[in-house]
Structure formats: structure tokens, C-alpha cells
Design a protein around this nucleic acid. Sequence first.
DNA 1: AATAAGGACAACCGCTTTGTC
DNA 2: CGACAAAGCGGTTGTCCTTAT
Length: 311
Amino acid sequence: MGRAPCCDKASVKKGPWSPEEDAKLKAYIEENGTGGNWIALPHKIGLKRCGKSCRLRWLNYLRPNIKHGDFTPEEDNIICNLYISIGSRWSIIAAQLPGRTDNDVKNYWNTKLKKRLLGRRRDPSRSQHLQSNNQDQRESSNENDNSTQNLSASALERIQLCIQLQGLPLPLFQPQANPLLWANDAINQNQGQNLSDILPAEISSNPPVNENGVVSSLDEGLLDGIETFSSPSSGVHSNVNAVEAELRGLLYGEEGQVSEQSYNREEDFGIGSMDWWDNYANKSPVSSWGYPAEPNPISPIPHDYASLYDI
DNA sequence: AATAAGGACAACCGCTTTGTC
DNA sequence: CGACAAAGCGGTTGTCCTTAT
């Protein structure tokens, strides 16, 4: 027994939309709205299309204020930062880019950005040097090797990206650098397991576990931990700006222009920088989780982060 | 000029989530 | 509270266009 089809596949047209079909759909929705029922809509206007297909065509192409064409460097940066942080949540990423659709962002990532980032290779000697300067973090990363076996493909891709970005061990994905996101991933993929088995000691010392020691959801203890690890004095914070610089280098061919010193420096790269990270670090994630009512339109901060992570 | 290969984008598919009764 | 329908979402596929040979 499979799932019932949403429409009669035999009687609906598939493939590219004609200008006439576009015009029909656009005219109807502009005048009447969707009526809250996409399935019924094609019948109302005499389109031999599946309701889902109509919805997609409207959302991705016909809807007003849709931006087509080249992505700006700022948009590139937002997409990369968010992808590394939250993975392939395209709708969330697209929500931070006015006029862009999730499909657009997804296609752009898969066809261009990912290749630009992963297709470039770093100087191995430099990576080695950087890693030797971060012995402790590398060891910490090795301790997490087993846990990566359970990660999703997109998570693994993120790890690969982080490795690609610099020799530092997973700066953005590492729990110290982004414990909330790490913990959320780990919890999602290990429901019912003991926290100490899936999270590093730093995080599990502030465990989001219930009285039985079972992972439930992020709680205040973990958030306190996040606040601690996110603070500029933790030393991890300064590396984030270095990652940002590296990202820019990979994206726009400035590879090698980032000095090694910058890995331990606080820098401001202006628009598209990790300002959003400062928001996490300088505001308490617990007490200041709410974001401004009118956020910066290019801010990469998901406005509904709190609901996203069920905290 | 012909054609194969690769890239870019649109559209589809099916699973998950959400809303309604 | 459970069942069902609709919408949302992300992965995948199909098609068209461009570039290389």
C-alpha cells in the first residue's frame, strides 16, 4: 500500500510551463489568491496541472519580487555561513535572502558555491602548520571521529567544508565553536541515547538530559554552556573571523591573502562578516534570543532560530 | 559543422510536518 | 486524540543551453 497520489497522474501535464499557463495561474492568484487550496486551484482555472506543480511554479517563479540571476557576494557569504552552520535547510537559508527561493539557493549551492569551495585545495604544509598550533583542538576532534559515523551526508559535507576551509579542526562545526548547532544535530540523530555518549565533555557537563539521563531537548544548562563557549574570551570566537576570511578567500580567489596571524585576531570584515556570531557571543543566547523586529535584510541570522531549535 | 560533455535551472517525487475535523 | 488532507521541504531528475573537441 503506497501513498495515494495527490492527483491523477495520467490527466495532468508535466514538464516546462508555457507562457499561457503562467499567465493563467498568475492572473488568477493575483486576483483571487490561492484560496488556501492548491489541489483544487488548477481545476478552477482549467489548468491541466497538479496542484503541487502550480504551487511550485507560483512560489519559485511567478510570485512578485522574485529575484532571478546573479547572487551577490553578500548573498554568497550568507549562504556559505548558514550552510556550514545549519546544513541544507534551504528554506531557512532562503528566508534570509529577500527575493530568493529555496530552490534557487539549493541549485546555486549545488552547481556553483559548493564547487567553488570544495574544488579548491589548500597548501598542505600550511594546514599542517596550523594544525600543529591547535594540537588540543585536533585531539578533541579526533575524539569525535566515531560520532561522525552517524552524521547525515550534509553534515559530513559540512565537515569536509570546514576541513577544506582551513587546517583548523572543524572550527564552525566543533561544539566549542557552535555548541547549539552541534548539540541539536547530535540530539536529533541520537534520540534516546545518553548524552555523554554523543556529546563531548564540554557540552555534556551541562547536559540537556532528563532525570533518567536520556537526551530530551536543549535546556538552560546547555544554553549556559553555549554562552560560556561562545564568549570571545574562549579563544574559539577569534578563530571564527579567521574562518570567515578563509571563506572569502576560497569564494573570491583571495586564497593565501589571509595571514596566519589573523587566525588569532579579532577582525571586522564588514557586510557579510561574522557579525551574526558576535550577536550570539555578546548577547546572552538565553536572555537575548529574540531578534530585532526589523532585522537587517541581509542578516544571516534566522529570525526564528528559537523555534527552529525548539528551545 | 557536428556532437559529446558538462553546467544551470526548472520541475518532479515522495517523505515529513502542520492544520483541521 | 487520532485520522486525514494539504502544505512544506529537500533530494533527485529532466531539459535546455553552452562549451569543448
